[in-house]
Design a protein around this nucleic acid. Sequence first.
DNA 1: CGGGCTTACGGTGTGCGTAAATATC
DNA 2: GATATTTACGCACACCGTAAGCCCG
Lengths: 88, 88
Amino acid sequence: MELRHLRYFMAVASAQSFTKAAAALHVSQPSLSVQIRALEDELGSRLFDRLGRKVSLTQAGEVFHDHAERAVRELERAAQLVREVHGA
Amino acid sequence: MELRHLRYFMAVASAQSFTKAAAALHVSQPSLSVQIRALEDELGSRLFDRLGRKVSLTQAGEVFHDHAERAVRELERAAQLVREVHGA
DNA sequence: CGGGCTTACGGTGTGCGTAAATATC
DNA sequence: GATATTTACGCACACCGTAAGCCCG
């Protein structure tokens, strides 16, 4: 698992669509699809229900989303603080 | 920034040595060194003081360590919960 | 049928390891 | 002078984009 997977995952969850998420991330839809699939394989569960028109989080997906969001936030905060300190 | 950078960073902070951290991570010391450097470049601050024998966290490094640890923990927890749910 | 996700397939950037250089004690 | 980190260099793998395939409304 890499942060890229989390960023992609969050984008799809937010957009409820692979197509829109791919556009927002400036990557192609196939790349996004493959990476989400890799994440799902690693975690051993589907994270999204692909329902033709709308993509929605599975139960596992919602659980993951909750924690992933916190983790990403934590890292953004970490980077921000380091840049503020800027102390050698 | 990718999770790999965080894992490497945590390992060096823990071992207080690039050599030992590289062994623990099963990667070569040069690879580890390069990745830490990349992280430092991205954050705009040195995270470690290289003092010949001992490697120690800078002030920026300590700040980053605090948050990075929480983020990594959060992700481990997320993965664990998803594997437990295992619901579609 | 049409929009959208997936699978297939090459190309390319980047992380990795080996080897050489530099620095600190 | 030895141990430890950094720099140099080539390679291999994995991400990416394009193109083709599939599926659901």
